[in-house]
């Protein structure tokens, strides 16, 4: 089959969605986490990170994080050129150590939440978000 340039282009865009590969955690993401933990061990569990499996647009991806008893929670987007997203510090009047926000993701990747517990220990959770390539309609 002979494909014209534009058909190849259109097919390529379609295929890009199907073969999407997560952007790997970069060294900068690891550095950001190490700066937060001071290099301490990070356990799994105790943190809940809720994010959509598929985001229709990487510009506005809703996420929710919760870590009962945490003093603060760091959010990192491991595949963004600049992985830092936000740090939530909870005060005495926080009724729950939980928050929701909307974030930017440069592509399909893992979002990581690291919580610093009141006793100084650390825990983490992560979620993979597929960011689709919006195709059409300006």
């Amino acid at each position: 089959m002979e494909l014209s340039r534009r058909e190849t282009l259109a097919l390529g865009l379609g295929a890009a969605f199907l073969t999407i590969m997560p952007l790997r955690a970069n060294a900068a993401a690891e550095d950001a986490i190490a700066a937060f933990t001071g290099g301490a061990d990070v356990a799994d569990g105790g943190v809940t990170l809720t994010a959509p499996e598929i985001a229709e647009n990487g510009n506005t991806v809703p996420i929710e994080v919760s870590a009962p008893g945490a003093a603060s929670i760091l959010i990192v987007a491991a595949g963004n050129p600049e992985p830092g997203v936000a740090t939530f510090n909870f005060g005495p009047l926080a009724a729950a150590q939980a928050a929701s926000t909307r974030i930017r993701l440069a592509g399909t990747q893992d979002v990581i939440a690291v919580a610093k517990m009141a006793d100084g220990s650390f825990a983490k959770a992560s979620a993979t978000v597929k960011v689709t390539i919006g195709g059409c309609g300006g």
């Binding site: 600049e82 909307r102 974030i103 930017r104």
Partner: peptide
Amino acid sequence: IDVTMEPAIS
């Protein structure tokens, strides 16, 4: 709550 924000906030 006291939130530190980076450019990845929408």
